[in-house]
Design a protein around this nucleic acid. Structure first.
Lengths: 332, 332
DNA sequence: CCATGAAGTGTAAACGCTTGCATTTTTGAC
DNA sequence: GTCAAAAATGCAAGCGTTTACACTTCATGG
């Protein structure tokens, strides 16, 4: 219980050995069992904990990877982060999570401090930075994107993302199977929103579905409600594909306001499968993003860039259609 | 674009000055304007970024505080973390978030690595560690709790928490005002659950409310639904206070399954005000936890332990009653 | 101009650890 | 026992910064 925490040197002195030996005991170098035991005793007695800052300075490694998330509120981001932690932990490393609150300059700043702290890698979720800026700021630190906002053009930046097109196709197929013929879309912004919208436009004909209306949202509940109100001025469609679950929740409100009975009057499909999506009324049919797997994949790639199964460029994961009561055959 | 990132020394050499001078330029020491400009040019040209690890080693400060959260999925945790970031940023510091996934030994481990990295402070959200363990592991690092699971007994550990009793009282007062007389409670686990339960038991009489039934939950939607089913075998109450919003969402399901019409048949009140609580059907009346303020307060305390308005021991914040449509007068 | 102090700048010693290399000790075969 | 090889240990040089302290300038007033 001294004032300043004990150092390697303190341990060495108490054990009557050199700092080198103590270091080796701690890091599994060659030492005689007796010496090792002695040293370990002293370590325990003194409550010595190696100073990772000093260690990092000499080894050049920090055993930490930074995870940059746009915000903490999205369960999807949480799931991705969790996946990253899964594999880091298996390697004795740690994840530190940093948020940027959707602000490009702040994002760059955050990355810079992470790099200045010499993290061993960076997982960037939904990054909006362009490659030149990123290259500039990351210097020699390896980076993996998860669902980047812009498509990375540089091979230095592998990326994991969701296969929006495949997901949409699953939903369309199911809708067609149920007998729907005319659908509407609550479109979302940014890359994911665009991709989903494009997929619908492109794939709907293949399933003999007509895309009757499209209204824009910003992925929020409120926008979903507003867009829903606009949309419901027409009644010439029997199903709505929402940009995501949040906007679907908003749409529910609009439908209620119109006195609609879900799913009998109208089928609603979301995207994400948030934890509470099953608790909406009616429980929402949605496309589940395998967040945790995405995180795992990203971290794996970060840690083993040379692995036999290493990939480059973009790697996509296909969402699952989680069928719940919000999906039904069209009213007759 | 060299192989290894440029060091202070590189900058000094290119600028023809000593490392000390460069350091002073960067840290605002006394230097002649001309020299400063020259050095800054070189810094920019070389793309030099100070190595915070080295800096941390000599200064003993990291300008980073660790935020330990049980998990990332709770929006409340996110809000608290956000509050912490607010004040850190204002001090030029950074927050790193680390999760422990509700596991006591892992929690201790995480704290240890944070301390070994010499974070300048620790904000522990919902920590389950007892004081001796914590004292042991934090050594000289300042700690502030937010909603700790056990009541800290040690003055070293100030704490910010929600005033469950005051919150419950607000809800009870409003219920009585609406004319309710008999209520039920979906009780939650752990400290918050207990405090809320105790508050109801203790305060209900004061508002002429009878607590007809209590069923336990674990704060989850599923438990809320199960507990709701149990509860609804009786019909001798007109309002339900739920342990939190998630269990309230579960209760909604149970009520639907029973064919109940909310809020006409039954009033439901939650606790937390999650982002989606307003999008339940009917929108949930609930007690809002001022997470961001809690985080701000905690960080403030961490950074200025000697401030004039510094407090010690526990500091509580009162939740607000957010009245929405799930609350109505009792059926006549 | 010189003494005087203030302001700038350089030197070198930490900070706490790892690690290559030299040195000592141990081991085992003879 | 002796000696060489192997194993364990110690020495000391960094890792990239900051910061006393000492030293050099430079301006100022006499």
């Amino acid at each position: 219980m001294s004032d300043r925490p004990p150092t390697l040197h303190d341990v060495a002195r108490h054990a009557g050995v050199s700092t080198a030996t103590v270091s080796r005991v701690l890091n599994g170098g060659p030492v005689r069992p007796g010496t090792a035991r002695l040293v370990r005793d002293v370590v325990k007695r003194l409550g010595y904990v190696p100073n990772q800052v000093a260690r990092g300075l000499v080894t050049g490694r920090s055993m930490v990877v930074g995870v940059l998330v746009p915000d903490l509120v999205g369960p999807l981001n949480a799931a991705i982060a969790r996946g990253v932690e899964d594999v880091l932990e298996a390697h004795g490393m740690h994840a530190v999570i940093v948020t940027d609150h959707r602000d490009v300059v702040r994002e760059a700043k955050r990355i810079e401090t992470l790099v200045a702290r010499r993290v061993d890698g960076l997982v960037l979720i939904g990054s909006e930075l362009d490659d030149p800026t990123l290259t500039d700021v990351t210097a020699t630190t390896p980076v993996v994107h998860v669902g980047a906002e812009r498509a990375p053009s540089d091979e230095r930046f592998p990326e994991v993302r969701i296969d929006n097109q495949a997901g949409i196709e699953k939903a369309l197929a199911r809708l067609a199977e149920l007998g729907h013929r005319r659908i509407a879309h609550l479109a979302g912004p940014r890359r994911d929103g665009r991709e989903r919208h494009d997929a619908i436009r492109q794939l709907a004909p293949r399933y003999e579905l007509a895309l009757a209306h499209v209204v824009d949202t910003d992925f929020s509940e409120e926008a979903g409600r507003d867009a829903g109100a606009t949309l419901l001025r027409h009644r010439d469609f029997t199903a709505v594909l929402c940009a995501n679950d949040r906007s679907a929740a908003g749409f529910y409100q609009a439908a209620r306001d119109e006195g609609l009975n879900l799913p009998d009057d109208l089928t609603v499909v979301g995207f994400d499968d948030l934890p509470w999506s099953a608790y909406l009324d009616p429980p929402l049919t949605t496309l589940r993003q395998p967040g945790r797997d995405m995180g795992r994949l990203a971290a794996e790639r970060l840690l083993h860039p040379e692995a036999s199964d290493a990939w480059r460029g973009v790697r996509t994961l296909v969402p699952n259609l989680v069928a719940r009561e919000s999906m039904a055959p069209p009213p007759t």
